[in-house]
Design a protein around this nucleic acid. Structure first.
Length: 111
DNA sequence: AGCCTGACAGATA
DNA sequence: GTATCTGCCAGGC
């Protein structure tokens, strides 16, 4: 199995919607760490990178949305400037070009 | 049920 | 590096 991705997020029997689980996970991503859309979908065991993106688009305005990235390390296409600014404020490990996050170092596995 | 849409991802050229 | 295609899958109509 791939590192940490088999862990399901379960809220003590509480019946939460999939969208809420997605937001709950994003909220837990530590400063300086990131997850990809796909990472999140696998972590919560629901949907796909695409569907996580849809959730973030509609309900992600109050969580650290800038810590959710494309698989190539680039930030959210809807607001890349702002995302980059916040990521740098987080001291997120970046690639030399400063445009992409260094996923190798910054990826969060949920621990 | 069927069709379309989309803050995605991987493979290929 | 870019462009294109295919697969993905929940939501809305």
């Amino acid at each position: 199995m791939s590192a940490g991705l088999s862990t399901r997020v379960v809220h003590g029997g509480e019946r939460t919607s999939h969208a809420e689980e997605v937001l709950a996970v994003v909220e837990r991503i530590p400063r300086g760490k990131v997850m990809t859309y796909k990472d999140v979908s696998e972590y919560v065991g629901w949907g796909s990178g695409r569907t996580v993106g849809a959730v973030m688009s509609r309900h992600g305005h109050e969580v650290p949305w800038h810590r959710v990235l494309l698989s190539n390390g680039r930030p959210n296409p809807a607001n890349p400037e702002e995302a980059l600014r916040l990521l740098k404020r987080d001291r997120t490990p970046m690639m030399p070009d400063g445009e992409r996050v260094d996923l190798k170092r910054a990826r969060w596995d949920g621990r």
